[in-house]
Computed example of a mutant assay.
Amino acid sequence: MDVADLSPARARERFRAGERLPTAGWCRGWTQANLIAVPAALRYDLLLFAHHNPRACPVLDVGEPGAWSTALFGGDLRTDLPGYRLYRDGRAVADLGEVTAEWRDDLVPFLIGCSFTFERALLAAGVPVRHLELGTNVPMYVTNVPCRSAGRLSGPLVVSMRPVPEDLVATAVEVSGRYPRVHGAPVHVGDPAGLGIGDLARPDFGDAAEVREGEVPLFWACGVTPQAAVMASGVEYAIGHLPGHMAILDARDDDYRVG
């Protein structure tokens, strides 16, 4: 079966069984989300950080301490994503296929909006999406733009990039802008140097995507930003998704469309 035709429950079964792939293009019409789980002592700092930085950290759902499911995610957050990243003292120490043994009783899971949510709408409007064409992971970059800090959390904005033909830039901005709870319109259009990105061929996460003649790079705020804050702030313990390997929710993309 084409992965685009899978239900969220079936996709989660495949990840639980060991499938390890980026999720762009999976489960057509179903919303995907970033995962970050932090100790309960930091949950209000993270909520405030998200409130201060809503473009990068649009919170879709939050679980109770120790919970491994939420109202929008009916599976097991410890096993039903295709990849996880474990952090200790602000350092990424392991990429894992499941985190049952690592999931502490005090961890509070946050599900953060993902720009994959509006990619089908971009395609429907005639805007190409390069990483879907190539079957690769979306490129993501740590910028020199600081987020607004909150409590013990601070760090840089992370962005995802999609190259768009020049004559479709306005369309891409308008279409993605209809999804403000999942990053919305781009935060930057054009020269990556304006974000402190020196080389588009060397993303910090994901795979490079060629910007061809006549195309303009568009940059959207990215839900990996909380993981960058975990690193910058030296958080003692946290679990995130492996970038591009998302939680597939029991919610529809159209739930987050306005206008």
Rank of each mutant, 00 (worst) to 15 (best):
A4E: 13
A4L: 07
S7H: 02
R10F: 08
R14S: 09
F15D: 10
A17W: 07
E19Q: 13
P22R: 02
P22L: 05
T23A: 09
W26H: 09
C27D: 02
N34P: 02
A37N: 13
V38R: 00
A40K: 03
Y44G: 00
Y44E: 15
D45I: 11
D45L: 09
L46C: 10
L48R: 15
H51C: 10
R55G: 14
V62Y: 10
E64S: 10
T70P: 01
F73L: 12
G74D: 09
G75R: 02
P82K: 00
R85M: 15
R88Q: 14
D89T: 05
D89H: 14
D89Y: 13
R91H: 12
L96N: 04
L96R: 15
V99Y: 09
W103Y: 03
D105H: 11
L107W: 07
P109K: 08
F110W: 10
I112F: 06
C114R: 04
S115H: 05
F118H: 11
L123A: 14
P128E: 02
L134Q: 13
T136P: 09
Y141R: 04
Y141P: 06
S149P: 14
R152I: 00
L153V: 01
P156V: 05
V158D: 05
P163C: 03
V164R: 01
P165E: 04
E166S: 13
A185Q: 08
H188P: 10
V189Y: 10
G190L: 05
D191Y: 11
P192M: 11
A193G: 14
G194I: 05
I197H: 12
R212A: 13
R212V: 06
L218Y: 01
C222S: 12
V224E: 04
P226E: 02
A228M: 04
S233L: 05
V235C: 06
P243N: 02
G244M: 08
G244S: 10
M246S: 05
L249V: 03
R252M: 07
Y256P: 00
Y256D: 08
V258W: 13
